[in-house]
Design a protein around this nucleic acid. Structure first.
Lengths: 172, 172
DNA sequence: TCCCTAGGTTCATTGAACGAACCTAGGAGT
DNA sequence: ACTCCTAGGTTCGTTCAATGAACCTAGGGA
């Protein structure tokens, strides 16, 4: 975002959220973290995002308390980025915006979401019509009618799976 | 957003929403439209946004079906921008993100929101804990503890008022 | 005649996004 | 012993959106 990613003169909570989440690519990174993507190269392959931008976004999300960087292997040192509790709480926002997009912009959704316990499709709020509020970890993602990207990470997401369950792409 | 405001290679609904709503300032324009701001100069005064950017965002939101441009006076010709039904349906997204920001980033909210009928504070989803789903027009906005901007448009928003009710700033 | 208002447009400057190239350290293959 | 591969980045020149000050236009009011 050119010349100032901040909104200094604003008085609302939304502007503070947008300083952290409103930059290009940022919310897509969070969405894919909810889908189970954890590693730098997996984000990069799935999003086709310039590495320098991805690096910046991961740092900012980590500093902002949305992600946590963890070493998952000592030698050679390798890292993954996990959503914090605050990050997981962005699920309703991401889902509501996706539903809005499908309703008002159009396009077939490549992935659908239901309550894992009762298999009921979620309301736009992310709640289950039968059971009420649903934790993000109890949401099951399964393939929808829309076209899907063809890369190893996206392919690994085609099996029905819960949110936050780590994506393990097959090696090429 | 530099070099491409689009996300062409993406397969998700969210990326299509972000092509329309994800640029700098855009969601703040929608938020203020929900708060009752309708006129070019009122958006400009309240947001301190460069006029060229505001002009671009209003055109894009209008083309995208979020706003509708209407002439409210013939001579001299004057215009206002009203939210469409699709635009009003962004209220839960805007509200959920504001609540997230207050919970996880902090800061006092300058405005609070309750169900106008029963005066109960809304859930983060925008629903009323007592009555269930609430239409945006039945949400009442009232001043909260946080600091407020001091401009004629922001001052006009300090009286308790329903969402979408037109803001009428006092002339300076 | 002059100024004011609403609703913009024009333009030079700045700095974020892009993407290709490069880097580093540890295994793995031959 | 040497080379390749992988994960996880960094560097850097190019492109283009954001900024803000100046300007524009048409009608009304003093």
């Amino acid at each position: 975002m050119a010349l100032g990613k901040d909104y200094l003169g604003q008085d609302c909570s939304l502007s503070r959220a947008l300083e952290l989440l409103g930059e290009r690519w940022t919310l897509l990174v969070v969405q894919n973290a909810l889908y189970g993507v954890r590693r730098f190269n997996d984000f990069q392959v799935r999003l086709d995002i310039p590495k320098a931008v991805l690096s910046d976004r991961l740092v900012r999300l980590t500093e902002g308390g949305v992600l946590e960087k963890r070493q998952y292997q000592a030698s050679p040192p390798r890292f993954e980025y996990l959503l914090t509790d605050a990050g997981v709480e962005l699920w309703p926002v991401v889902y509501a915006l996706s539903v809005w997009s499908h309703r008002h912009i159009g396009g077939e959704p490549p992935r659908l979401f239901r309550h894992a316990d009762c298999r009921t499709k979620l309301l736009p709020t992310g709640d289950c019509p039968e059971c009420g509020p649903v934790a993000a970890g109890d949401v099951e993602m399964y393939p929808g009618p829309g076209p899907k990207r063809d890369d190893p990470v996206s392919r690994a997401m085609n099996r029905p799976r819960r949110l936050l369950e780590p994506v393990v792409p097959e090696p090429a």
